[in-house]
């Protein structure tokens, strides 16, 4: 069932995002920590990939590097055919604004803006008008048309995360990066949100990379990568919650309740 770790070193590919021998080192000397150790991975277009692993395994770091939020110590990161490792802050900002979408665990929305304004934020920052049809589709998908004029504090946690997903989708990004998007939600809201992410992959061909430690969340993905000590140690296609849990037990990963 388990496959060997694939080391991909293709100069070009049709992957939406990929990492080539990415190493990330924090600190120096005695405090030196290797967060990522020559990790290579590819994330196919229109696929939903979950990155799993215990605390400190480097799963969040990998996502941050892929999204252009963090720099790498060595190796290269591609978004489509664009090498992110060579870009300056201005270009990275444009990449984040136009080509990727983010959903964080919490504090996703700007408290002073309404739900609709939060959804439109990346487009407004770019000074672009949204494609009205697409905006409608996104709003309908999250099912919050009647709450659009409300501010984040007037929305429930689940509703806030759905608004964040809508914001991530509105600019039709190449990849949506989600960092523990259900970490602060109850199980019912989690299921709703994950079903919604799944639908956007199936219906619109959206590429999603999600960091999670929850086997149930990972079961919505097409593929799950397992990290430990900065390396990819396992990979599962079409994971189910049971298989993920089994694998985690086998990898001697404590099934923590940490965040």
């Amino acid at each position: 069932m388990t496959e060997a770790v694939k080391i991909l070193d293709l100069p070009t590919s049709d992957a939406a995002a990929r990492a080539e021998h990415v190493t990330k080192i924090y600190g120096e000397g005695g405090t030196r920590v290797v967060a990522l150790d020559a990790v290579s991975a590819e994330f196919g277009r229109g696929k939903f990939t979950a990155i799993m692993g215990p605390s400190g395994s480097g799963k969040s770091t990998l996502m941050h590097c892929l999204a252009g939020l963090d720099s790498v110590s060595d190796g290269r990161v591609f978004l489509g055919d664009t090498d992110l490792t060579g870009l300056d802050d201005k270009a990275l900002t444009n990449v984040r604004r136009d080509r990727v979408g983010f959903v964080f665990q919490s504090f996703n929305l700007v408290p002073t803006l309404t739900a609709l304004e939060n959804i439109r934020l990346p487009l407004d920052l770019a000074g672009r008008d949204p494609d009205p049809g697409w905006l409608d589709t996104v709003i309908d998908t999250i099912g919050l048309r009647d709450r659009l004029g409300h501010r984040p504090t007037e929305l429930s946690g689940g509703q806030q995360q759905r608004v964040a997903c809508a914001r991530a989708m509105v600019s039709r990004p190449e990849v949506i990066f989600a960092d523990e998007p259900t970490g602060n939600l109850d199980s019912r809201s989690s299921a709703e949100l994950l079903a919604f992410l799944r639908r956007s992959v199936d219906q619109t061909g959206q590429t999603i990379v999600m960091v999670t430690h929850d086997p149930a969340a990972a079961s919505y993905a097409d593929r799950a990568l397992f990290l430990a000590d900065g390396r990819i140690v396992e990979e599962l296609d079409n994971p189910t919650a049971e298989r993920v849990l089994d694998l985690m037990k086998r990898l001697d990963v404590p099934t923590p309740t940490e965040t």
Binding site: K90, N94, F107, V110
Partner: peptide
């Protein structure tokens, strides 16, 4: 700080 970080993450330029 967090809010500004979020804005930067979703694509607000330093100039903005």
């Amino acid at each position: 700080t967090r809010e500004i970080g979020l804005l930067r993450a979703v694509g607000m330029a330093t100039r903005q």
